[in-house]
Design a protein around this nucleic acid. Sequence first.
RNA 1: UGACCCAUAGUGUAACGGUAGCACUCCGGUUUUUGGUACCGUCAGUCAAGGUUCGAAUCCUUGUGGGUCAACCA
Length: 562
Amino acid sequence: MIEKKRALNFLEQIIEEDLANGLNPDKLRFRFPPEPNGYLHIGHAASICLNFGLGLTYDAPVNLRFDDTNPVKEEQEYVDAIKEDIKWLGFEWDKELYSSDYFQQLYDWAVLLIQKGKAYVDDQSSEEMARQKGTPTRPGENSPFRDRSVEENLDLFERMKNGEFDEGTHVLRAKIDMASPNMLMRDPLMYRILKKSHHRTGETWKIYPMYDWTHGESDYIEQISHSLCTLEFKHHRELYDWFLDQVYSGDDLRPKQREFARRNLSYTVMSKRKLLQLVEEGLVAGWDDPRMPTISGLRRRGYTPTSIRNFSEAAGIAKRDNVTDLALLEFHIRNELNKTAPRVMAVLDPVKVVITNYPDGREEQLLAENNPEDPDAGSRSIPFSREIYIERNDFREVANKKFFRLKLGHEVRLKNAYIIKANDVVKDESGKILEIHCTYDEDSKSGSGSEASMRKVKGTIHWVSIAHALKAEVRLYDRLFTHEAPDADKEKDFKEYINPESLQVIQDAYLEPSLEKVKPADHFQFQRLGYFNVDDDSRPGALVFNRTVALRDSWARMEQKK
RNA sequence: UGACCCAUAGUGUAACGGUAGCACUCCGGUUUUUGGUACCGUCAGUCAAGGUUCGAAUCCUUGUGGGUCAACCA
């Protein structure tokens, strides 16, 4: 049992209760059961963190079980991607298992059910069966095949298995209760004929078990103590238990299904179908587009495993529908990167500054701290010269006292360098500023200890030396949707809320030269701008950066309020 | 015209019959060679009405609101 150092979520409370009622802690076992038909997203991450987190908390094994009962939709590619994502999140599964491993056992048990008169073969079409099923408010009626003899059922089921019938001609159904208020109990399908090649069992099987028949029995085979799934499976629990009743021996562990609310995130969609739509319609570049809420998208965007795990922990787990604020995820990545990401200088929207009293041709190396939050991060040198770039929006010809940046006749500190004063601007015919002419205070060099270097100047801005700068591509990402719950409105298509400015590509950003040898997935803070990581598309000499998340920006907020 | 689930600051979650707390967001301030970080502070909540009880966010009833269920998907 866990000592009460933090509040337990309701699932942990259930486990504690089971333990208190005599469940042997060694019997605790969990599982994460994805269907390999798509990529994992942040919602899955919540489930992964929950199940593997319980494993860690209780020192219990957690199986990775691929729920691969539908060969029509499942592929090895997804199996591989899912495994990679879980490993990347930093979790280790006990056993890698597949529902398809249990096809024979499931078949044998189905035969048992037939023998007990609890299952029958139905020859009707799906339409006919749907008609007989009734509605939530009206009971269903029995199938004309419901009372077939055991012998006939056995024979037909075996022939289904042998591939003697076409798809759609026969199914095996559990004989439960066509009048049950729970639609799932109205003689649910256990098997359908599918003459498709399975990614693991190949052509061996012509019939495939349905989810409900498979899931609980798989939990039972694996002796999963707590089978945790999302709320929409609540109604399945009755059937889960019914199927278990048919095979439960009475003297081993009986799995227990419990349900929790899936994790939703604001400003995105989470359904596989909708994510697939975004990919297929080319609205994003792929499953790992940095705007996607997929694990692979978040990874490419620059999110770290720790930030995602901390987010999951902070968001918690409960039974009510929710839309968690994207700001919470952003908080956790900033929080981590603030401590770990080296600071560098990059200018994304350059304007040229000429320091007129700095000798032409001279250059010097200045010392820059790599991370003020990490004393062990050390320092590096950066080149300074007469001509530099600064951000265009860090200069105004005239501005009020609130503008802590460069303006005509006023001083500003160049980060890690000198204090400069703007004297003049050069413009083109249209009035666009081409150059800002400044003078520098030679005695104000950062870290020199001189009186001038200690002067308090209100603003400090970043810069790069033009002669030494690396040119790079920078991709600025923003939320994919403008609405916090894009799929909440049933009248509107979620794609209407796509943010047209979710990606802005800057072809000619300028970086300090220390970044020459960066590798994909390296993280940096571009000072005063945000956290950026090196994209997979990046090559030596053709660097590509993604903005993971911007820094908090109280200046931008002030400006916006005006 | 059913069954089941859910309802606590803007958001997400605690409190398990005994002082409604935490985090994020927002807002204000201090420090700062990042308008970042750190630190301090403010605002803000038990869906409603009854009932049980010395005492109710918690238990009961009713109502209201939201969600789920009628795939040979999982």
